[in-house]
């Protein structure tokens, strides 16, 4: 490679390295704000380093798995309450409205709303989060994957 090209390549590599480091470090520094939701343990304890604990009255999103057996429906209205869990303690979500089709016990969901007690969220929106696995019903049955839709009765 002739010297001029070599010099240009070096300069460009340095620029690219610089831009990549700046972007990387900024995103790393901001990573707690890039997260789109808190996990239930983070609502209890704050983020990893013990900071950013949501306060009562704050509008937040919480994402976790619906605890099996925790879904309680009001027979008269659309009110529903359920618990969310990740790896630690759980929090309770209260919601009034129609749940997404993918809502089931054990399913990952993201609830957005206001924290009315330290561990209770009054949700205005409930979104379903699904995993990256796709398979036909026959295979899911064969490997015993739970996929019963929510019971609306």
């Amino acid at each position: 490679m002739n010297p001029r090209r070599k010099k240009r390549l070096t300069i460009i590599s340095l620029i690219l390295f610089g831009v990549a480091s700046v972007t990387g470090l900024s995103l790393y520094g901001l990573s707690n704000f890039v997260d789109v939701f808190y996990t239930p343990s983070e609502v209890h304890n704050g983020k990893e380093d013990g900071t950013l604990k949501p306060e009562v009255g704050q509008n937040i999103r919480v994402g976790g798995l619906v605890v099996v057996g925790s879904v309680k429906r009001d027979p008269e209205t659309l009110k529903v309450s359920f618990d969310l869990i990740d790896t630690g303690p759980m929090i309770t979500v209260q919601y009034e409205g129609i749940l997404p089709d993918l809502f089931r016990e054990g399913q990952g969901i993201v609830a957005q709303g206001k924290l009315i007690k330290p561990t209770t969220l009054l949700a205005t929106e409930v979104l379903a989060k699904h995993d990256e696995e796709y398979m036909p019903k026959e295979i899911a049955d064969a490997i015993g994957k739970h996929h019963k839709p929510a019971d609306y009765n």
């Binding site: 995103l27 997260d35 789109v36 995993d131 990256e132 696995e133 796709y134 398979m135 036909p136």
Partner: peptide
């Protein structure tokens, strides 16, 4: 992988076997 997202992880663009039938 780096952050909490609503979008799920990679199904096919990874070195492991694809997570679909």
């Amino acid at each position: 992988e780096w952050w909490n997202t609503l979008h799920q992880g990679a199904t096919v663009t990874k070195f492991a076997a694809p997570s679909m039938a």
